[in-house]
């Protein structure tokens, strides 16, 4: 499933420039990124209302500071992710951060069920997830949970296509080594 990055980065630039003058022009940016940011926050909060509040706060800050946004030829997506991450940090300042692992895809796959439960029970998965940095976690989220294409991820992460592919393949081989006793990746 794709979130529909049919609009080019140039189109986004136009929206940003117009948003600096008129708040109404922010609507396409809001509509394009809302679900992605909401799901990112939902996965880190496990709370629908809280995720909606933080998402609203993220877009509020983005619109308030849109005049300061400098166009560098890349999408506004990473900037929104950055604001959302800061909002999360602020919220979880004195509390332990949450990370939700979804298993609906695995539930439907009989071959994956047994190794999956073994992974969860042995706490191996959480140990491996702990060893990843934020960018690596985000890469896996975008590719395998949000099911974005490499092009879309490259736009979102302000990287080029080959870098994203290389990063993901390296990450997969790293995971393969760490999880080889449990699953085939």
């Amino acid at each position: 499933m794709s979130i529909g990055f049919e609009h080019s980065v140039d189109q986004e630039r136009l929206w940003i420039e117009q948003s600096k003058i008129d708040t109404k022009a922010f609507e396409p940016i809001y509509n394009k990124y809302y679900d992605l940011i909401f799901r990112f926050l939902m996965r880190r909060t496990d709370d629908d209302t809280l995720a909606a509040d933080l998402c609203s706060q993220t877009f509020f800050k983005a619109l308030s500071n849109i005049k300061k946004f400098e166009w560098r030829g890349t999408s506004i997506g990473p900037w929104l992710y950055q604001i959302a991450s800061n909002e999360l940090k602020k919220h979880f300042r004195n509390r332990k951060k949450i990370f939700v692992i979804e298993e609906d895809e695995i539930e439907s796959n009989e071959d994956l069920k047994a190794p999956w439960f073994a992974l969860i029970e042995s706490n191996k998965l959480t140990m491996v997830l702990d060893s990843l940095n934020e960018t690596e976690l985000q890469l896996i989220e975008l590719k395998y949970f949000e099911q974005l294409t490499f092009d879309e991820i490259a736009v979102l992460m302000s990287s080029n296509l080959s870098t994203v592919k290389m990063r993901l393949y390296r990450l997969l081989s790293k995971l393969r080594v760490k999880l080889e006793d449990h699953v085939e990746i």
Binding site: F38, K97, I98, F99, V100, E102, E107
Partner: peptide
């Protein structure tokens, strides 16, 4: 680093968020 929580389904990925 995290409080890991396993959920069967967190949201309907195909649907737009009701808060949007």
């Amino acid at each position: 680093r995290y409080d890991y929580r396993v959920r069967r389904k967190l949201f309907n990925r195909g649907q737009e968020s009701s808060h949007k």
